[in-house]
Amino acid sequence: MVLENLEEVNQRILSACKRAGRDPGEVTLVAVSKTKPASMIEEAYSAGIRDFGENKVQELCEKYEELSKDIRWHMIGHLQRNKVKQVIDKAVLIHSVDSLRLAEQIEEEAAKKALTVDILLEVNVAEEESKFGFRLDDTECAIRKIALFPHVRIKGLMTIAPFVENSEENRFVFKKLRQFYVDMQSKNIDNVNMNMLSMGMTGDYEVAIEEGATLVRVGTGIFGTRYKIGENEV
């Protein structure tokens, strides 16, 4: 199942790139493996996938120890400040930096380990109450403050668009963030290398690619629905 699903996702990525006149090499597929067993991850790995995304620190750390060391783990879920020290030396990229306080914690823990941590700022473009992230109006100010941290590197932006039945409804979200991203690139802020735009999930990654995403986070489209025990997700 995983291999067939991956083939379809890759074809859709290629088609979206073709429609947008983009080089498919500009788009990285992050296979969201939250709640999935190692055997399914190994199946995707055997098909050439090396970028995997996890929502929870504990799960990322366990899989980091268990699976191949050339896997690039992405922290894509909400990150609590008290768990930063567990993940900063394991994740190649933290997509979900959603507050100045979290960035300060990453700086503090990275300094202790003499690391430089690559991050994306999570932007709540649609300003949904249920989502984390900076408001678009506050993001430039946050970028300029975090850019001063010597052990943190801002690599770009991330957003989680609203859940919609028709992916076209999210086009304005992706377009708006891309416009802001391009604007930030043009300002050449020191210690900010604005070259990653993480947007689009299983339901809307094709639209996100058409609007400039460089990273798409696809879980159910590759692995199917999440495993559950009773009513509780695991």
Rank of each mutant, 00 (worst) to 15 (best):
N191W: 05
H95F: 10
R217V: 04
Y227V: 09
R81T: 13
I71F: 12
N5V: 04
A142C: 00
I41E: 07
R22V: 01
F149C: 00
K175Q: 15
F132Q: 14
V192G: 12
P150Y: 01
N82S: 15
C17L: 06
M199A: 05
E65A: 15
T139Y: 04
I71W: 07
T220S: 15
S198I: 10
K113M: 12
D23Y: 08
K69V: 01
L6S: 05
N5P: 02
K69T: 10
L215E: 12
V164A: 11
S68N: 14
P150A: 03
E169R: 14
V117H: 09
E7W: 00
A20G: 03
V173H: 06
K228F: 06
P162R: 13
L115T: 06
D190P: 15
E66P: 08
G224K: 08
K228Y: 08
F149H: 00
T139I: 11
K18P: 00
C141Y: 13
A110D: 03
N170C: 01
V84L: 02
S33W: 09
K56V: 14
L115M: 12
Y64S: 14
K113P: 09
K176D: 10
T35P: 01
K63M: 10
E127I: 00
V182F: 07
V97R: 07
M184V: 15
V125G: 05
Y205N: 02
G77P: 05
V9F: 06
A111V: 08
N10L: 15
E165G: 08
A142K: 07
N10G: 03
K69S: 15
M158L: 09
A126S: 15
E129M: 12
A161L: 04
T116S: 12
D183M: 10
G48C: 08
A38Y: 03
A44E: 04
I49M: 03
K176P: 02
A111M: 11
H151L: 09
P150N: 05
E165M: 01
